[in-house]
Design a protein around this nucleic acid. Structure first.
Lengths: 201, 201
DNA sequence: GCGAAACTTGACGCCCCCGTCACCTTCTGG
DNA sequence: CCAGAAGGTGACGGGGGCGTCAAGTTTCGC
């Protein structure tokens, strides 16, 4: 993205229109929820005409897909990278959570959109972003176990627990007056580090 | 409920109609999600006429409220009771989770409905069932701390973690071929018992 | 500078939902 | 057994979303 080429005016407008739709959709999905949202709700938040929307996406589900690719993909990548930088059990756990909570605070609109529509996303895609997040964590945990970093355990359930707990703690953090990602990170890291370490016997 | 009185036919029909709407609504909300569901979708699953619906509920939000009162209330009660029977940290944690996973398996339609619409429910009510579940857990944890059963810790975040982890692990359990609530219970109990016990230093 | 291609526009036809209400059926108490 | 009340019914007017497409506007390449 943001490739060097300034490109012709035609191409520029296309990029801008697509981006505008994506931004508007994120807002609408966050506010109304995907199910209650209409293509027109999205278009109205834009200075485009109805017909233009359909030049870019066939329907609202396609927009959701595109939004998720942009955002959830980004979030997962950041978390995964942070995790993989860790060389101890403690760092692996802590840095992953830290990156996640940082993302939540940075892009609250997306956070809201994701949490509001998590159930729908789950039901709609077989490879849903959230579930994919769980899969990636599970893979990383498996790698950690193989490397002797992490004691053996039920990797699937552990990944699910970590994602679920982080999700709920994150929601609480965002609701608070002065969200403190360090506090959230410390709390949840201690919890899972203890849970994992307990397996070392 | 199920009071001894057989009651007049009039009253009987009223009960039946209300119940039929509630059942249909649960199905529709589980399948389509609350946002995408229409009052007519619900009515169609029923042998009632459109107008009759409005004799019982003013709109679909009211039905959701009623459904939640019936179901989430029941679930929370069962979990809370199980928890309060525990007299050790271990039992407190384990029995709560056991009751939750048992409920998930017993009433899968409701489970599906709740998880599909969790985000919407959250956004719609200030005292949402899920969040209320977190509050109750937090209260019980506080009581446990006061009684010396449980070491001191951040009760809010712990409650959030437990609910979030149970939610996600439960979803995974339900997705599996042969759901095993004992395995889920053991896994997640061990995790949180270790996490809580680690505070004892 | 020009003609053709690319794109945008918004009105249109179709469909479905909303909540209501006049009419009809069913129950109840006397 | 009946009259009146309670409650069920579904057609109706109003509103709005859907996806399309003919007409208009902008950009491009020459």
């Amino acid at each position: 993205m943001t490739s060097a080429a300034p490109a012709g005016k035609r191409e520029q407008t296309k990029q801008a229109n697509r981006a505008a739709i994506l931004v508007a959709a994120r807002e609408v999905f966050a506010e109304l929820g995907f199910g209650a949202a209409s293509v027109r709700d999205i278009v109205r938040k834009t200075d485009l005409a109805t017909g233009t929307f359909y030049n870019y996406f066939p329907d609202k589900e396609a927009v959701l897909r595109a939004v998720l690719e942009e955002t959830a993909g980004e979030a997962r990548l950041r978390v995964q990278e942070a995790r993989r930088r860790g060389t101890t059990l403690e760092a692996f756990v802590r840095e992953g959570f830290r990156a996640y909570f940082a993302f939540l605070l940075e892009d609250r609109l997306t956070s809201e959109m994701l949490s509001r529509n998590a159930g729908t996303i789950r039901a709609m895609f077989d490879e849903p972003s959230l579930v994919a997040g769980v899969e990636e964590l599970a893979d990383d945990l498996r790698a950690g176990v193989a490397a002797g970093l992490i004691p053996e355990h039920d990797v699937e359930y552990m990944a699910a627990s970590m994602v679920g707990a982080a999700f709920e703690v994150g929601a609480r953090m965002l609701d608070s007056e002065a969200p403190d990602p360090d506090r959230a990170t410390e709390f949840i890291s201690a919890l899972f580090i203890a849970g994992l370490a307990a397996r070392r016997r």
